[in-house]
């Protein structure tokens, strides 16, 4: 991104930044964001540089970090124990800062239990580990259905769990964010941690799917 957040530049730069062929609808709330941001920066509430850094996170997400944590848990029993005991503490070494007072809970999939996460009230999500949530995670239908009929919803994602498996749905909130620790797929015995990271997907860490065996 070019100069957004840098307020030492001239107004002409603004016009260039928001040239019409860039897909950016500047409706009421888009303009409101600019106004609020400018006013708060002028008040010294935060700096343009801090805004830029937050924008980078919004831009690039961070789901690679979630995959790193999962692959590490698959290969390092001490780390796994620590992750399941207190997720926030375990991921702190990755320089992950959970926002506000949020705590991270990792929930482990096993042959008997499959976990899936949702935020029925809004869109709480382990952003520092997975980036921004996908649209469907925030959608009315996902929020309204997954707690009541998780198997049906998972089936829509192409995930069919054996009948004996218990499905647990975890409802996230401002204080508690969940991360699903998927099962390590069969056939990956000789894999390096990096190879394992490559197998872990965002949707498996939300729990709407599983990590498939390598093909």
């Amino acid at each position: 991104m070019p100069t957004i957040g840098d307020h030492d530049h001239s107004h002409e730069d603004h016009e260039r930044t928001f040239q019409p062929d860039e897909e950016d609808s500047l409706g009421y709330y888009a303009i409101a964001e600019m106004a609020v941001r400018e006013l708060l920066i002028e008040r010294g509430i935060f700096t343009a540089d801090e805004f830029r850094r937050h924008l980078e996170v919004a831009d690039h997400g961070n789901q690679a970090l979630g995959a790193k944590v999962v692959a590490r848990a698959w290969t390092d029993p001490d780390f796994k124990a620590s992750l399941l005991r207190d997720g926030s503490v375990a991921v702190a070494e990755y320089d992950v800062e959970m926002l506000g007072h949020t705590r991270l809970y990792a929930v482990e999939n096993t042959h008997d239990v499959h976990n899936v996460i949702v935020c029925t009230l809004c869109s709480c999500y382990p952003k520092p580990l997975l980036g921004l949530p996908p649209d469907w995670y925030k959608s009315r239908n996902y929020r309204a259905r997954v707690a009541r009929e998780p198997r049906k919803v998972l089936a829509e994602f192409g995930t069919f769990l054996p009948e004996g498996v218990t499905v647990r749905v975890h409802d996230s909130n401002a204080d508690m964010r969940y991360l699903v620790l998927p099962m390590r797929p069969a056939g990956t015995e000789g894999y390096t941690v990096e190879q394992l990271e490559g197998l872990v997907t965002r949707d498996a860490m939300i729990g709407v799917t599983v990590v498939g065996a390598p093909v």
């Binding site: 897909e23 950016d24 409706g27 964001e33 600019m34 937050h54 924008l55 469907w136």
Partner: peptide, 18 residues
Amino acid sequence: VDMTEHVLEPWEKRVDAL
């Protein structure tokens, strides 16, 4: 559940960051 995802528009990212 509609699984289609859209790429965030710049203004949406700015609101998220703010």
